[in-house]
Write a protein that binds this DNA or RNA. Structure first.
Length: 491
RNA sequence: GGUCGGUUGACCGAGUGGCUAGGUAGCGGUCUGCAAAACCGUGUACGGCGGUUCGACUCCGCCACCGACCUCCA
């Protein structure tokens, strides 16, 4: 199948045909989490969006190297708090732990949470602290090229100098003059020639815990350096796709571009992709706004805004329902709707797997497949593709009800399509509770119980059969009588 | 204030110059001993005001409101 895959490039603000720099290889770099607190719903949007992109690229036959960094060298703390203190260091002192202990703890939490959500692990998950030398080399390169200056052991990027040869702001559409007009006067900025200049290397204060030696000072790398460095180290000086949340567009990604151009003479990224935020009551869900819901709270239902626990696949389905460039508003109602929608999809696939073939098909299957891939090829519109799959689910159910028919070939095609889309590309999976439903002992018991119930039904002893059903329900087992027997599942 | 984006039915949320998005909930029906599931039917949805057009929710203009970014943030 020929895939004309279009991606919305933030650089240029329009959809462009995706053509890898060096086919069939694709380099994908995504800004990962800063690991100093629990993973929350906001992180999930990023992880799932780019997981689906990664899976779809693989599906199309590309050889993809997916790099997602872990920021373990904390960025500067809010300057208002004084010393430009390293965030990770600050938290570490509060909890009386080594900084690297914090990093390890939340890194583990992230990796585990993302695995639970069935995201594929990146090919490389580099850390900023593991690339201090490379970052220093890049600082040196930028200094050598004349786009930075050293002062008091710190090195700053020189925006004015850069603007003589290039243009700062091409990604976010910002103009230097306008930025300057709106600059706030912040403390600790006297060293900079211009307020827009940003640190490439920062001398560590006496209270600063995370620091490394360098030719300029004992210090730490600037906010934006790690991504420029690790992206080009593992994917080349110019690679295909760089992703991240919209809130990183400026200044983070803008600075990345400037750094790469200043160091290597060319931009390092062909397609910039930005996912939108998850909102709660219309406002961005973020650590800094303190309105976030952690994944743990979602999985256990322990948050005032939640009426119950939601499974990882429900969360994934929830995220899947909105296009990645739209905001997605969180609510308990929306999650309940997602939970039921996901169950319907999974039941439909089960029905599809058990469909009896007819001599000929009464409907055309081809349009469903066509619609699904048209949607995905149009800027990864997975929410539209999902709605196409639901059209197919209605069809599948109709066939199961005997109102429509499909021949064997079409049933096989449908099976292939649904498995490719739902499991391989969307990354959903059937959630059966390990150890609860999938052992022989349990299924033996259930068969025994349901047999007794069916015998009661045959005797028209509905009082008994209903009592069994009720008691099973109390234990969390729901049952459904079908023409082929009785099905059961854990609620 | 600047830049960018949004405003869709009870809720979440796609999309298009004329044809049902989809999911969830509701209502009516079919099936079933009942329930569940499933199927069928059903709701004068597109912020306001103008304009372009044979026709606009979809294009243009103005206005209102909301949000993101401009400071670490997915």
């Amino acid at each position: 199948m020929l895939h004309q895959f279009y991606l919305y490039n933030t650089l240029g603000r329009k959809k462009e045909l995706f053509e890898p720099v060096n086919p069939p290889y694709v380099g994908l770099y995504v800004c990962g989490p800063t690991v100093y607190s629990e993973p929350h719903l906001g992180h999930v949007r990023m992880a799932i969006t780019f997981d689906i992109l990664y899976r779809y690229l693989l599906f199309m036959g590309y050889k993809v190297r997916y790099v997602r960094n872990i920021t373990d060298v904390g960025h500067l703390e809010d300057e208002a708090s004084g010393e430009g203190e390293d965030k990770i260091a600050k938290k570490a002192r509060l909890e009386q732990l080594e900084p690297m202990e914090i990093v390890q703890k939340y890194k583990n939490a992230f990796q585990q949470a993302l695995a639970t959500l069935n995201t594929l692990p990146p090919s490389i998950e580099p850390t900023a602290s593991g690339h201090i030398i490379e970052q220093q080399i890049m600082v040196k390169k930028i200094l050598d090229n004349g786009y930075a200056y050293e002062i008091n052991g710190s090195v700053y990027f020189d925006i004015n100098r850069y603007n003589r040869d290039h243009t700062y702001g091409i990604l976010s559409g910002r103009k230097t003059e306008e930025l300057l007009a709106n600059t706030r006067t912040l403390e600790g900025q006297e060293e900079k020639h211009s307020p827009l200049d940003f640190a490439l290397w920062k001398k560590a204060g006496p209270t600063h815990l995370m620091h490394w030696p360098s030719e300029w000072s004992e210090g730490f790398p600037g906010w934006h350096l790690e991504c420029s460095v690790m992206g080009t180290k593992y994917l080349g000086e110019t690679f295909d796709i760089h992703g991240g949340g919209m809130d990183l567009m400026f200044p983070h990604h803008e600075c990345e571009i400037a750094q790469s151009v200043a160091a290597n003479g060319k931009a390092h990224v062909k397609y910039w992709m930005h996912n939108n935020m998850i909102t709660i009551n219309g406002q961005k869900m973020a650590r800094s706004l303190n309105n976030f819901i952690t994944l743990n709270q979602l999985f256990t239902g322990t948050h005032p805004k939640l009426t119950k626990a939601y499974s990882p696949m429900t969360i994934r389905f929830f995220v899947l329902q909105a296009h990645y460039r739209s905001t997605l508003d969180f609510s308990d109602d929306a999650l309940q709707a997602a939970e039921k929608g996901f169950a319907r999809l999974m039941r439909g696939i089960q029905t599809l797997e058990n469909l009896k073939p007819a001599g000929k098909s009464s409907v055309d299957i081809g349009t469903i497949e066509q619609n699904c891939f048209n949607a995905l090829n149009d800027d990864l519109n997975y929410s539209l593709a999902l709605s196409c799959l639901f059209d197919g689910i209605t069809l599948i159910n109709s066939v199961s009800d005997g109102k429509e028919s499909l021949n064997e070939e079409d049933i096989n095609k449908m099976n292939k399509l649904y498995h490719a889309l739902v499991f391989d590309i969307f990354g959903l999976k059937i959630e059966n509770r390990e150890g609860e439903t999938s052992n022989e002992f349990t299924s033996g018991l259930m068969e025994l119980i349901l047999n007794y119930r069916n015998e009661a039904k045959l005797r028209k002893d509905f009082a008994t059969s209903d009592k069994i059903r009720e008691q099973l329900a109390n234990m969390g087992v729901s049952i459904r009588d079908t023409k082929d027997g009785t099905e059961w599942e854990l609620m």
